[in-house]
């Protein structure tokens, strides 16, 4: 089962790796509302086709890949919405909501497992397809591309938002192709990409290797513990929201510059989980210690959204989708690389091999955070206006 689980996960990740960059250009042409709506609806609705073929066959694996493509295509759209709907000093609050994906992971275990046990696997697919269909109806009724297009905003609110966001910063304005040469030679863009890679590598190692470590070395099946399996994910989301609000507040009060705030959050989201991964392989005989520090690492990783992800919209609001698309491509590559390292590095489950896998992830987190500290930025780059 483990090999099959890896294959399904791997194909989904390949989808999320290929989709974001093409999607960022498509989103600039047709608008983020359509792309985000189609991405979420497509990934959920495809679940309804799984029961028509054999589960865990190449048919199912192909569906997982396409679901990954749909899911990966949604990321640039979110950053375009952030750029066109939120003033610069309120964007981290919105971007921190992206961590709701983590709550979705927890809900899959919390709701999905009893449902599969009671009504079978197929019921999970029908539930997902129905929920996404209902969501898509709400999405198309309620959401618009920008404050200018929203029918229920008062004139006062619309004027306030347009004044605060500033001229020229909207999703529609991103239609001209990005200045690729200047974008790809921009150090802050690569800082975002590298830090996203590190973040995803760390998260994948925490979710795959640390949970497996608890299971095989301590006999503690975290996924069957109702509280401890969901606590880290909800904590991650709440921490992300808190970091987002706090960082917007301190930037609004001019207590710290945006660049300093982003770097401080990368320090929290990368160095702390890195330190946890470094020590978790040496954590004695009681499973309570590794389980507690695993939870702490997942929770503080919530700072990623208000740190690295928000930096992608800071550096180029007009091309936020493209910069975030590039970052998410590197992020998916980090998740894939971590999955391969975990799979290949844990043959035989020797103490040395666990420590090696954890150590590699800790190094990647520390290295990518150092790169961000050196070349990351929270300032709008000149090529944003080209």
């Amino acid at each position: 089962n483990e090999g099959l689980d890896f294959r399904l996960r791997e194909m989904f990740l390949w989808g999320t790796l290929f989709a974001p960059l093409p999607s960022s250009r498509l989103t600039a042409k047709v608008g983020p509302v359509r792309i985000f709506g189609i991405g979420i609806l497509g990934a959920g609705a495809l679940a309804v086709f799984v029961p028509f073929g054999a589960w865990f066959s190449s048919y199912h694996i192909t569906i997982r890949f396409v679901q990954g493509l749909f899911t990966g295509s949604t990321w640039p759209a979110l950053h375009m919405l952030a750029a066109s709907w939120f003033p610069p000093l309120q964007r981290s609050g919105f971007v921190s909501c992206y961590s709701a994906v983590s709550v979705g992971h927890a809900m899959a275990g919390l709701l999905g497992t009893p449902l599969v046990l009671a009504l079978g696997r197929d019921s999970l697919c029908y539930l997902l397809a129905t929920l996404t269909l209902l969501w898509a109806m709400g999405w198309w009724i309620l959401v618009r591309e920008s404050p200018a297009e929203h029918p229920r905003l008062s004139d006062e609110q619309r004027r306030h938002l347009q004044r605060a966001i500033g001229p020229g910063l909207s999703a529609r304005n991103a239609v001209p192709p990005p200045p690729w040469r200047r974008l790809l030679s921009s150090l802050p863009v690569w800082a975002c990409a590298m830090a996203t890679l590190g973040s995803h590598w760390g998260q994948a190692t925490l979710q795959l290797a640390v949970t497996k470590y608890l299971m095989l070395v301590y006999g503690f099946a975290l996924r069957y513990d109702r509280v401890l399996s969901v606590l880290p994910h909800f904590g991650h989301f709440l921490a992300a929201l808190t970091f987002g609000r706090v960082v917007d507040h301190v930037r609004g009060q001019a207590l710290v510059s945006t660049t300093t705030a982003r770097k401080l959050l990368v320090y929290i989201s990368h160095f702390l989980p890195g330190a946890v991964l470094f020590v978790v392989g040496y954590s004695g005989c009681d499973p309570a210690t590794p389980a507690a520090i695993y939870t702490a690492a997942v929770v503080v990783s919530g700072a990623t959204a208000a740190g690295v992800y928000s930096s992608a919209v800071d550096v180029a609001p007009n091309f936020a989708g493209t910069v975030f698309g590039l970052s998410q491509t590197f992020g998916a590559a980090g998740s894939l690389a971590a999955s391969y390292v975990v799979k290949e590095g844990l043959h035989g489950s020797l103490p040395g091999s666990w420590r090696l896998v954890f150590g590699v992830a800790a190094f990647v987190l520390a290295f990518t955070a150092t790169v961000f500290m050196a070349i990351g930025s929270g300032s709008v780059q000149p090529w944003n206006y080209s």
């Binding site: 985000f36 899911t71 709907w85 969501w135």
Partner: peptide, 23 residues
């Protein structure tokens, strides 16, 4: 809009983990 984005991402996370749950 924020609420709909959160719900959408929640569903996205659910879909991502659904295969492991079914397994």
């Amino acid at each position: 809009m924020v609420g709909m984005v959160v719900l959408g991402l929640l569903l996205s996370g659910f879909v991502e983990r659904s295969a492991s749950v079914a397994l």
